[in-house]
Write a protein that binds this DNA or RNA. Sequence first.
DNA 1: CGCGTCTTATCTGCGATACT
DNA 2: AGTATCGCAGATAAGACGCG
Length: 245
Amino acid sequence: MNINNIITQTYQSIEELKKYKQSLIAESVTKGIDPNVEMKDSGIEWIGMIPKHWTIKKVKYFLSESSVKNYPNETVLSLYRDYGVIPKDSRTDNHNVTSSDTSSYKLIEKNDVVINKMKAWQGSLGVSSFKGIISPAYYVYKIIDSDIYSNFLHYVLRNNLYLDEYRRISSGIRIGQWDLEKKEFEKLLYPFPNSTSEQQQIVQYLDKKIFTIDSLIEDKTKVIEELENYKKSLIYEYVTGKKEV
DNA sequence: CGCGTCTTATCTGCGATACT
DNA sequence: AGTATCGCAGATAAGACGCG
């Protein structure tokens, strides 16, 4: 069996795991985790049926925009598709330079919703578990509905059923940096379980599942790395060794 | 008219990839 | 291996907008 085949296959199984993770999240936050519950039509075309006891809510009524500035000494945060909202200096792969004057940065409190308006269509939005400040090129919202559990909302906002819709309500010329239109976003509808305890159950369920899937992905990534290194050493020998064109 | 906010396009640094 | 080019993830400047 040649190395390239193994690498390709491992790579594919990682992709499948990632897809499974996405659909598991989407399924859980729109259908719940009890398969025996009675369903009803949500009226939202990209969602379809939802549990009967869930409620559809409009962004405008559960989020309120916040733009608090002049806290230049707070921790600078950054929003990642993969990691959510984290302190910017906790990663070395962010090459963007923080402005020398952070007084126009927006203040984020714990549990605030942060949206990268240019990358929302890729799922670049989430609920922060940190307090800090972020570049003014983001939208910051506060949750004003006390029946919504912030960690549940985090999964809901990022679930992939909504990505096409985010893309649709974004506009702009530069490829890959379409601007999410705030007004359109505020019109979006999301389904929620009525009780926060059910929201918490779903979050716990997802956290556990995702941890398992992520560690599987990690293992496979390591396998690929090892194989790539082996392949490189072969190529190196070929190129520097007795090769003649 | 002045000022703050929003929009838009351009800019950036470096890892990844392609090629030789 | 060494070099050249691409692409990612996001920051930011500057003009447009709009409010009192």
